[in-house]
Amino acid sequence: MSKKILIADDETDIVETLQFMLEVEGFECLTAYNGEDALNLAKREMPDLLILDVMMPKINGYKVCRLLKFDAKYKNIPILMVTARSQEEDKMIGEETGADEYITKPFEINDVVEKVKKYLEQ
């Protein structure tokens, strides 16, 4: 059975390109465009990995990450955080989120695919 990846970003274009690339690689993709949907979807669908953007409406990525990582049921799901290094994000840095990896925009899509593969092959 193919592995499930949840991609959450309010930028649909980014979601679409990531989704395309990951589906070509044979992964199943779920998408969310805000933090609240991402959290609900993650809890309902139990994906194998999450790609989370930091700046998202409703609940920001850091918080989504924290809520999942501090819940025994979901804490083993690898989470890749995507950041654009903005000022608002800087203010949040240093908070314990428990994310497995940080990816800075603009990222290389192939790097992201490699990282996803690395986590899911373990």
């Binding site: 274009d13 980014i14 690339m21 654009a84 000022q87 925009k105 603009p106 899509i109």
Partner: peptide, 16 residues
Amino acid sequence: HELRTPLTAIKNSLNI
């Protein structure tokens, strides 16, 4: 910051 996001989308498309 505002430039990064569209840039990522362009980059992704080119790479695909």
